[in-house]
Amino acid sequence: MDPWHKFRRIFYSVGIPPTIWLIAFFLVPLGLIWIFSFGEKVGVVGIDITWTLDNYVRSFNPDILTIFAKSLWLAAVATFICLVIGLPVALGIVYAPNKWKGLLLLGIMLPFWTNLLIRTYALIAVLRTRGYVNFTLEWLDGAARWFLELFGMGGIALAILGERFQALELLYNDNAVILGLVYVHLPFMVLPLYAALERLDRSYLEASLDLGAGHLRTLWNVVVPLALPGIISGLIITFIPALGSFLTPDLLGGPDSAMIATIIERQFKSANDWPFGSALSFLLMYITFGALAIRALMARRRGGDGMGG
């Protein structure tokens, strides 16, 4: 690497345009809503910058706090489910035959490349009352009835299955949001886990088995502690976008499954309260930065104490 002052001309020519762009079209807009967050709404469109903390104070009223708590909860549950699914999947891929490895990783990545909106829509098509899941259930229900009828147990069928098939309400509730978050964010979890496990010398696992531990105890005593940096990284990388999700709760959630992004959007569109929306945006960003800081801190500590093995 060269010191910048030795090649000033090149340094300035490649440095100035992107820096100006970043400032003008990214940092200035962010700065603008940061300033807005200390403003007051005047009339329909006006904003008066009074450096009030009111918007932040309002964020701590119970309604908003509930939504924050709920967002954190939904994102956390989804992240945890991603971990529970992602760990065995990553482990399976790492120890798969070489020719399968790439294909399986690609298989995990491929849905990730398709449009977020479309993936969410695909879930709606599957889960809605007249969707494939309910359709399959109805068919199973019909088959069960027919089967019981055949043996003259229509009464039992009526008792267990009820008068007629009731479609499950799988959409527009918190569970649908969690399912959607898992669906969308699973690759975020699998990839760092894969990277961490791939780096893990397989003799550690073999040594553990050799010393008498079963697979589960090996997983808990050896794999999880040694892959911990990767696991934490995966948790944070999954949690951050899950927390900031807008489309998933918007399309899959019910009236009370609003997440932070939902109320931010509301302030900027229907409620037209930009200062409050700006304050909420910054609170969301601060949480994000906090999570990233934890990750960086972990990475530094791991790097520092020579966990190479």
Binding site: S203, E206, A207, L211, V222, M307, G309
Partner: peptide
């Protein structure tokens, strides 16, 4: 039987 691995595989944690 027990094994001493080439890389030793002493658990670093």
């Amino acid at each position: 039987v027990n094994m001493v691995f080439q890389s030793y595989a002493v658990f670093p944690h």
